[in-house]
């Protein structure tokens, strides 16, 4: 799951060229992903993993790192 998310972020929405992304890296504070990229990521996750992400779940706690994103998704 992590690998798919990393690949998508690196290839589609990262706003700077990246070699790799650590699963604990702060995606939002470091500026790897901007607000529009975040919206794209949510659409991608819903499609790829067949889940529905409610607006109230789109929080810093669930989306700040790749680890937290997959933890959140596995609880769905």
């Amino acid at each position: 799951m992590n690998d798919k998310i990393i690949t998508y972020i690196k290839e589609e929405i990262a706003i700077m060229p990246l070699d790799s992304i650590d699963v604990h890296e702060d995606l939002l504070g470091s500026g790897i992903v901007d607000s529009l990229g975040m919206m794209k990521l949510v659409v991608f996750l819903e499609k790829e993993f067949q889940v529905k992400i409610a607006p109230e779940d789109m929080t810093v706690e669930n989306f700040d790192t790749i680890n937290h994103i997959s933890e959140y998704l596995s609880k769905k």
Partner: peptide, 14 residues
Amino acid sequence: FPDAYVKLPASLSM
């Protein structure tokens, strides 16, 4: 509002 909150509307409005 920290950068992360500005990017996530649910956290921002909360």
